[in-house]
Amino acid sequence: MNFLSKKSYIAWYFVIPVVFIHLFVIGIPSILSLALCLTDWSGLGKINYVGFENFIELFDDRYFKKAIFHNILWTIIFLTVPVCIALMCAYLLTGIKRGQMFYRLAFFFPYMLASVVNCQIWKYLFHPIHGLGGFFESIGIEALASSPFTTKETSLYAAAFVDGWHFWGFLVVIYLTGMYQVDNHLYEAADIEGASKFQKFRYITLPMIRPIFIFSLMIIIIWSVPVFDYVYILTGGGPAYSSEVVANYLYTHAFVRFNVGYASAVGTLMFIYVIFIVGIFGLLRKLGWEI
């Protein structure tokens, strides 16, 4: 029994409650969900084993393919637009001595608001009667009279814009934290060498915050897989699946169409994809990348 009181086990005792909670709330439902992907369960009643039928159907499902394409597009948008803006703003903020806290708060504020609040604000803003749509119509600009959330060509980008607007402040804060940890002597040496502001950013700041930067890219790639709330509230995946994403597709099948088996197959593919991404980052770390 002595081994139980060894110091190295003490940390384990403290994490046991969390492990139990995770096991019951996440572990067991996840395993059950993986099992359900091989059934035609409706969410109630009998469960029939159907083998890989759900997957065969999924690979032939044009709306599922569309949802995957939208998730990829979403990931690319988030890996570029908010990241670039956040990097630039964080870097500019390091040069502001007075009133910096105001900017930090202002940028971070949308991140603190609930997604449903953010969405309602933007929905009302672009409302065709009460919002900007009504205004543009009244001054004769018909092209801007419709809400971008209900226009097929713009709905995905509009939802991504609102989510990005709420998210980029978070990136500013983590990039800023990284930038404050950079040794000031490096900048002083660069100043002596006559480096420009851009050169200091390119050759000092960016390499020095690389672990945080790569981490931010990793979480963006992973978080772009289950993206749901902004799409669900703003567009519902429509119109005509023009903003459909995989998580919303899963939700519709599980809770609206009573296709829990099929939805579980979608969930399984999402799970495999996330494991793959995490695996790649783990591999890169093992190969000595500073991430």
């Binding site: 065709p128 009667i129 809400s147 209900t150 119109p239």
Partner: peptide
Amino acid sequence: SGSLENYYAIGWDDFHAQFATRG
């Protein structure tokens, strides 16, 4: 509601208001 896009954007309170105000 004037267009497909507006139909998608209008909800319960909106269309009752439109009806009541001769929209």
